[in-house]
Design a protein around this nucleic acid. Structure first.
Lengths: 328, 328
DNA sequence: GTGAAAGCGCTAACAA
DNA sequence: TTGTTAGCGCTTTCAC
């Protein structure tokens, strides 16, 4: 920074306008000679356009906001990377905003990003649909990268995985492996793609009863898995556990080990997400992979296409994938 | 966005300047009446100052750049969170830039950030000191969050952990536990704080020989741990493994399990970093904790103090911490 | 082929 | 107590 259009112009003996045109290639009718001279001086002086000034003028900053619960929760770093890689390709940068799923934080950060004139927002979330409305009212294009979104929000783009179907399949895998008494441990909330529903559907399909005693819902964390398993085992027997995510599966695995119950011998376990260390658990966790990186890059791509070429936002369903390892 | 200072001014029947003064509290000599009237209209209209315009004018954007190898590598998400939390407290935002440790990427991103007029850069890195020089020449204040930095770079702030001492202590722990034939598996590179040196020092201190056959260096990843262990075991016997980081320890643990060698019975293992899932490995990994979150927040704090109050940048040594679990 | 004028939204310095 | 002027660095329009 420091060296401006004017500096270049002065040294080249032309006006700032001409330099601008050359630098941006915005005008064909510049003599080859002038163009070359200017380009040379640009290099000499190490001129770099001031993106802030440019943004102010053009009302486009080539910046994306990334709103997420917490970057230090696995799953999100991959998403972040996907977003940034795609953004970079198109000359965009990304501003990261952790909100801890708090509505106030979200509101505040949206205001922040909007004041900073980001051109669009990728909104990754796990829970409530809190202030979707506020997001919309900001007028900014938004793409929601959602694992579970409650309602349709017209006007927003969406990248999602059918987690209900994913859990349906993970449950079916356990059933296929001979489990008859399958527990379900997950987080507590209503969602468009209800994991619990996927679990119920699979049981029903197989003619197995849904036993409330085998269901535990709290949070998407290790503690929930651990405590859930103990709670369920206090009341009933099980031969399989369907987990709402891999963190829960980690808790379940730990509790099972503590109780001396063999996996997959006595109890089979299946996770969800395929967080990068799941394969290193022991036994390596069988789980359902969600394409986190791809979700991020697809979201950024949609947003940028919209910003740059006015392509409409849309809904995109990405495929999950069973990852068979050693807990089933 | 959309509603400007002028809009507020018009509606309040004052000039834009007055509104600016009221909004920023930059002028005591505004009548209570005017102030109140303006504040009311600001609320009504939902006026939010345009940070881009403000940044251009003031030459301060209240934005930090965060340059790192890869957010999807454990350790960095925590750092990122630390940075963002501290930044937020001071009204700063953070632009995340992954560089995969590539010098070209770093150069390019630094230019990018600089053109965007970020007020400072947090540089988290694991390896080579590539283009430190370029960073400096950008004129931007920089704080390096480093696990291993090669040289002194005057002018830059620095947050670090004495990893050499950390490995010295982790090795000593193994020695104290009775190990005589300790392997060392880590990444290959020279650094200010040389982990390998820490390992050697500890052995020497205990009168134990340093056997090249027991040393393997490649990358900070699972594969290195896995292959390193196999390689070493092909040539010699061991009763302990000091790992350069937790990823390596994961590989070591897996290889050991594969070979039917018990941990910590036959071989003891110690990691480094205390990545958040280390405690869930089996057995739970004994390791050395690096305060990643704190490193991020300390870096951001130093930078912001410098930006806002011209406090000089400095070097800060953060403490590591032995986390005794079940692999030793 | 090139440049002058105007303005993006804001604020510091100075006037009134 | 308030407003005018000027300008941050850039680009668009339109005149030359």
């Amino acid at each position: 920074m420091g060296v401006t259009l004017r500096d270049v112009a002065k040294k080249a003996g032309v006006s700032a306008v001409t330099v601008s045109k050359v630098v941006n290639g915005t005008d064909q009718h510049i003599s080859e000679e002038t163009r070359l001279r200017i380009q040379k001086i640009v290099k000499e002086l190490g001129y770099v356009p001031n993106a802030v000034a440019k943004g102010l003028k053009e009302k486009r900053t080539n910046m994306l906001g990334f709103l997420l619960p917490d970057i230090s929760n696995s799953f999100f770093p991959e998403v972040a990377r996907g977003i940034e890689d795609m953004a970079k390709v198109h000359g965009f940068g990304v501003v990261m905003c952790n909100t801890d799923d708090s509505a106030e934080q979200e509101t505040e950060r949206i205001r922040f990003l909007s004041s900073r004139m980001v051109d669009g927002i990728v909104f990754a979330r796990a829970l409530k649909n809190s202030n979707m409305r506020q997001l919309l009212s900001s007028g900014l294009p938004v793409v929601v990268v959602d694992r579970d979104i409650e309602t349709e929000h017209t006007g927003m783009g969406q990248i999602f995985v059918d987690t209900q179907r994913g859990i349906y399949e993970s449950t079916s895998l356990l059933i296929g492996a001979g489990c008859k008494k399958i527990a379900f441990i997950s987080a507590e909330y209503a969602a468009r793609f209800d994991r619990y529903q996927g679990y119920c559907d699979a049981l029903q399909q197989a003619g197995l009863p849904v036993e409330p005693k085998r269901v535990y819902k709290d949070h998407y964390d290790v503690k929930t898995g651990y405590e859930g398993l103990y709670r369920i085992l206090a009341n009933t027997e099980i031969d399989g556990v369907v987990c709402g995510n891999d963190m829960i599966a980690v808790g379940v695995l730990n509790a099972l080990k503590e109780k001396g119950i063999s996996v997959p011998g006595q109890v089979k376990v299946i996770g969800f997400d395929d967080v990068y260390f799941s394969r290193y658990l022991s036994p390596p966790l069988t789980t359902v992979y969600q394409p986190a990186y791809q979700m991020g890059s697809a979201a950024a791509e949609m947003l940028i296409d919209h910003i740059l070429y006015q392509k409409p936002l849309y809904k995109k369903n990405l495929d999950f994938e069973l990852r068979i390892r050693n807990t089933v």
